[in-house]
Simulated scan of single mutants.
Amino acid sequence: MQRGQSHLGNPFLSPDFTLAMGEVDRRVRVAVARDGDGIAGFFPYEERSGVGAAVGAWVSLCQGVVHRPGASFDAAALLRACGLHVWEFGCLVARQPWFDPYVTLTQDAAVLDLADGWPAYLRELRGRSPKFLKSTLYKERKLGRDVGEVTSAFAVDSADEFALLRAWKSQQYRRNGRPDRFGRPWVVELVERLHAVDNKDFGGVLSMLYVGGTPVAGHFGLRSRTTLIGWFPAYDPRFAKYSPGLIQHLRMAEGAAEAGLETVDLSVGAGYEYKEALASRTVPVSEGVVRRRTARAGVHWARTEPVRLARRAVLGTPAIHRLADRALKTYGRRRSR
């Protein structure tokens, strides 16, 4: 089903991701939908007392029904069959019209097109974002002159370097006033399991940037046969003036192209200038909540809707979003000190 429909080729929709989540969280389920022609689709979800969420919702960057071409579903009937009163989604894959009435916010994900190879993408980037590319390449050369030779690796199997990347990311979360994903044991167990998987259909990819052989930036993402998903980028803050994260993203894209991947999906790019600069195009990503007409769904609405409305107002108003972001970073810096 995924191979036959490119928009479903996201590795977060892969059975491998759902199986890995099922090994770290007993609440993971998969509904198998059938019709007169056999299996019509698969609906992975997590269940908490009748309230459903996407599998690995706190870290997942793509959700939805993986289905046979042409299949159609009724969202309320799907939930009823699963025993769910509510299903919340945060990164709904495109072309799932049965969930359209329940979408509350749509944002654009930044996508790099590598199907024609690295030289073609680089030419396109130079024409679209010349200042960004020139500045990033200049900082890469300066880093090489000031510190040491700059090199990169696309797929790294080092457990020590993966642990170093997670430590950088945890520090970044705290500096920015965000919850530390890697402060949760199940997230660490999940990504370590995924890092151990490496095949052309699915796997965790650790890419690293080095200066004089020392790691200075890195990224851990998931890949499918055609797509690499941006997930956990981080860098050593001691080298911040050289923008090692930008250099690493550029070299990661080069490595992905050389590995035969056709796209790099950096997820939602609002407020991230580097994503907007690198993107060849954007694709819509939606969030929302499906509720059946039940008492339990009503209680869920009363408990969660005020927060959802406030978040939508922040994300939908750039000035408020910038103010909130600055407030979180100020809080993070104080907490770090």
Score class of each variant (00 low, 15 high):
Asp198Gln: 11
Phe202Ile: 14
Lys200Val: 12
Gly117Phe: 01
Ser207Phe: 00
Leu122Trp: 08
Met208Pro: 09
Ala153Arg: 00
Asp116Ser: 09
Thr151Asn: 01
Phe202Tyr: 13
Glu124Ala: 15
Arg128Asp: 09
Arg181Ser: 15
Ala110Gln: 05
Val156Gln: 01
Arg126Gly: 07
Lys200Cys: 13
Trp118Phe: 02
Thr106His: 00
Ser207Met: 00
Tyr121Pro: 04
Pro185Ala: 05
Thr151Lys: 01
Gly117Pro: 05
Val150Phe: 00
Ala120Asp: 12
Gly117Arg: 01
Asp201Thr: 09
Leu122Gly: 06
Phe132Tyr: 06
Phe162Ile: 08
Val191Lys: 04
Trp186Pro: 06
Tyr173Ile: 04
Trp168Ile: 02
Gln172Cys: 13
Pro130Ala: 10
Ala115Tyr: 11
Gly127Ala: 13
Asp201Trp: 11
Val197Tyr: 07
Glu192Met: 10
Arg126Pro: 01
Ser152Val: 00
Leu194Trp: 09
Phe182Val: 15
Thr106Tyr: 08
Glu189Ile: 14
Ala153His: 01
Arg166His: 07
Asp160Trp: 08
Arg181His: 11
Ala153Phe: 01
Asp180Leu: 08
Met208Cys: 10
Leu112Glu: 03
Pro185Ile: 06
Val205Ser: 02
Leu112Tyr: 01
Glu140Leu: 11
Ala109Gly: 11
Leu190Asn: 11
Ser152Tyr: 00
Glu161Leu: 08
Ala109Pro: 07
Leu122Lys: 03
Gln171Ser: 10
Gly183Pro: 02
Leu165Lys: 01
Trp186Lys: 09
Gly144His: 06
Asp108Thr: 14
Asp160Gln: 13
Asp113His: 12
Leu112His: 07
Leu112Gly: 01
Ser135Gln: 10
His195Gln: 15
Ala110Tyr: 03
Arg184Val: 12
Asp146Phe: 12
Val191Phe: 06
Glu149Gly: 05
Lys134Asn: 10
Val188Asn: 10
Gln107Met: 14
Gln107Ile: 09
Arg123Cys: 09
Thr151Gln: 03
Arg175His: 10
Gly177Thr: 01
Asn176Gln: 14
Trp186Gln: 15
Val187Phe: 15
Ala196Lys: 13
Gln172Leu: 13
Phe162Lys: 03
Leu190Ser: 08
Asp108Asn: 11
Leu143Trp: 02
Val187Ile: 15
Leu190Pro: 05
Val156Tyr: 02
Asn176Pro: 10
Phe162Gly: 02
Lys131Asn: 02
Ser152His: 00
Ser152Thr: 00
Ser207Leu: 00
Ala163Phe: 05
Ser170Asn: 12
Asp146Arg: 07
Pro119Trp: 13
Ser152Cys: 02
Val147Cys: 03
Leu122Tyr: 11
Glu192Asp: 14
Phe154Pro: 00
Gln107Arg: 15
Asp116Gly: 07
Ala153Ser: 08
Lys131Ile: 04
Leu143Val: 02
Pro119Ile: 08
Gln172Glu: 13
Pro185Met: 04
Ala167Asn: 07
Leu164Ala: 15
Asp180Glu: 07
